[in-house]
């Protein structure tokens, strides 16, 4: 009897505590400022690039020159022939990286001014400036891992989801 009473008491107290936050309502403190949904700049890239658009832009970003129409058509067909498009893009990028003429900063140039490298990479691939959080992340990542080269940074940008949209 005593045991069941004590359990009931605990349950009552616990229920009362659950109701407490609902019982008082916080006053609206927006002070006549309209509430707006704030999204990052990248959120407005809503259109998915076609395979041809992707390849054309990728080639321009890596080689700083346009791809011929024939090559563009052929590479887009290669991508179409592979079901997993992520794999297809990865293979295309790694083929480009193996070709002469890729315009990538040297490792020492990257380390000489990491902030500048990050900003330029964002502008080159994602056509926007990075946020402070993004700069900090990449700066820490580059400094913490000696294996990270400009080529790998470029690879990750070319493979990112944001790069697939415009």
């Amino acid at each position: 009897m005593v045991k069941s009473l004590s359990v009931r008491t605990i349950l009552l107290v616990f229920s009362a505590m659950l109701l407490l936050p609902a019982s008082c309502k916080k006053e609206d403190d927006t002070y006549q400022v309209n509430s707006e949904l704030i999204l990052p700049a990248s959120a407005f890239k809503t259109k998915l690039k076609t395979d041809q658009q992707y390849v054309a832009i990728l080639h321009a970003n890596l080689f700083q020159q346009a791809l011929s129409a024939n090559e563009l058509y052929d590479i887009a067909q290669c991508i179409e022939s592979i079901g997993d498009k992520e794999v297809a893009r990865e293979v295309v990028i790694s083929n480009f990286m193996n070709k002469p003429g890729v315009q990538i900063p040297t490792d020492s140039a990257m380390h000489a001014d990491i902030d500048k490298f990050i900003v330029e990479t964002y502008e080159r691939f994602l056509v926007r400036e990075p946020s402070e959080a993004e700069i900090t992340y990449f700066k820490n990542f580059i400094l913490s891992d000696p294996n990270v080269t400009p080529e790998l940074v470029y690879f990750s940008f070319a493979l990112s989801n944001e790069y697939l949209f415009y």
Partner: peptide, 27 residues
């Protein structure tokens, strides 16, 4: 040594990207 950090950077970029457009058709 190379693919692992590359993917880590890609995943960071993907997590930062909040598109309000189409989703990606991934297998």
């Amino acid at each position: 040594d190379q693919l692992s950090p590359m993917y880590q950077m890609k995943y960071f970029l993907d997590n930062s990207f909040k598109s309000v457009g189409n989703s990606l058709p991934l297998l």
